[in-house]
Design a protein around this nucleic acid. Structure first.
Lengths: 108, 108
DNA sequence: GAGGCGAATACGTCATTGACGCATTCTACT
DNA sequence: AGTAGAATGCGTCAATGACGTATTCGCCTC
């Protein structure tokens, strides 16, 4: 493999880098039999994905906060790639995307 | 009020202490008009509540992990009061309690 | 009853995140 | 143009997420 991607120097500390590392860890864990993966939300979620989901259900972070109780500032951190949502947040975002009404109903 | 509870010394750093502080902060914020609370999940969630919810939908933390993708170790931290679930986690737990199937559906 | 096995509980640890303050920019709307 | 509300960006720090490891707790089977 001589035509592999050029990773530059400290690219591990980038979104792509984290995704890559996460994938490797996951693959190794799986190989070790530590994980019985049926399907999981353990991958990291890119900032673009977060914004995509938010836009799907709310015009602005503020509106999103009103509907789903997630602080707008926190959401913004995710959307801007400053922070990466943790597992619980990723699961919640997934649920919100696929069935926003169910979430609102639970919070009403 | 001479018969108030005996708080001991550093009780602020206890579950009760945190609940209390959270309530006070919330009350002040509300008074200041910073919050338009329709209903929120901003309160902290007691360990007992987490365990209650988990039991409602899963026999064990492990099973809960399989169904909802929340690491059993993390859940245990919440159930044992070592850690307090953050807002996103609290919202998710709330949704799981009221409509576990919707969550599973979204994760399938 | 002894031994074994998966799960639960408990404790220590550390990189990361959650959430805030503050400053700046970008929208509408009047 | 001027103002108000929202979004973006950046720095900060207490607190969490998640793991390793050790101990205890059923539950089953020999």
């Amino acid at each position: 493999m001589s035509d592999e991607a050029d990773f530059g120097h400290s690219d591990v500390d980038t979104e792509f880098g984290r995704d890559l590392l996460a994938s490797v860890r996951e693959a190794l864990a799986h190989k070790r039999g530590e994980i019985e993966l049926p399907y999981r939300v353990y991958e990291t979620m890119p900032a673009t994905r977060v914004k995509e989901i938010r836009r799907k259900v709310a015009k602005s972070p503020k509106e999103f906060e009103r509907r789903f109780h997630i602080p707008a500032r926190t959401l913004e951190g995710w959307e801007q790639g400053r922070r990466a949502p943790d597992v619980a947040a990723r699961v919640l975002l997934t649920v919100i995307e696929k069935d926003p009404e169910a979430v609102e109903r639970a919070l009403s």
